[in-house]
Amino acid sequence: MRVFIRYAIRETFTNLWRNRLMTLAAVLTVAVSLSLVGAALMFKQSASQASVVWEQQTKVTVWMSPKVDAAELSAVQSQLSTSPYIHGTCTYQTQQQSYQQALLLLPEAESSVLRPQDMPSAYLCVPSVPTDASILISTFSGQPGVYKVTAPTNAIHHMQQTIRVMQFVAITLALTLLVSAIVLILNTIRLAIFSRRREVSVMKLVGATNWFIRMPYISEGFMQGLLGSGVAVALLTALHTWYPLSGNEFHLSTSDLVGTSIVVVLVGVLIGSLGSAFAIRRFLDV
């Protein structure tokens, strides 16, 4: 057993070194594809975390008509305060406050023609769960004195869709690269097997077991996968450290990085082993 392990390790590194250019190409392809996979994973975590934050911050705004009368106002208010779809109590925004906000949002040329009495007052409400927003919209729209009910659900939806498209592109790219990584690993191992075919035939002749013959090539693929994923983990750590979106709702924790790294290493080792398994089945006749 000790002889076996020593032999396998020695042969693995000799093979890697002999075909070092091909090995480098394979390792770098693994690294690039796994970095993409990892980056896509981290971005996914980051994005889904952000959309939770956005949804929790979803506010339904019930805009009251500027000419609303006191009875209508109090009817809406009492309905809001008893609605099971609302978390806590709603904040009332006076016409004056709406006007101040409009001044901030609109360009001077437009805001200068506005007067506080033209502005709607509003109730700002937080739905019990984000999906209750649509119920609130349908309940309060069209009630007497209500001008309009709005919620930023569409904007969030749009944002999520964009993120999904980006993820899809990244994953497709990564998968394509993963396939080429497997092919490259397969090819390096094929070269290693070809350059060793005399050794292999002597080994078969003197009675080396199949596992003894295969092991160096299996661990060669394994090592290429491992080295590639090591580089990828380093790149991901760098990305995590200098993440451009940290400090807001996209922020990633260290455990996100650790989880992603584990996935990356597992995938790396898996594609390495797959590459060598194919090569051995195809080119090593034992």
Partner: peptide
């Protein structure tokens, strides 16, 4: 077994060629 064309490994020395037959069946150093 022995063949007409010897089938030695050209990159290994005489010692290594013979030792190879023992190593690959797991004989200790």
């Amino acid at each position: 077994c022995v063949f007409q064309d010897f089938r030695l490994l050209p990159t290994k020395t005489v010692f290594e060629n013979v030792a190879f037959a023992q190593e690959v069946i797991g004989r200790p150093r």
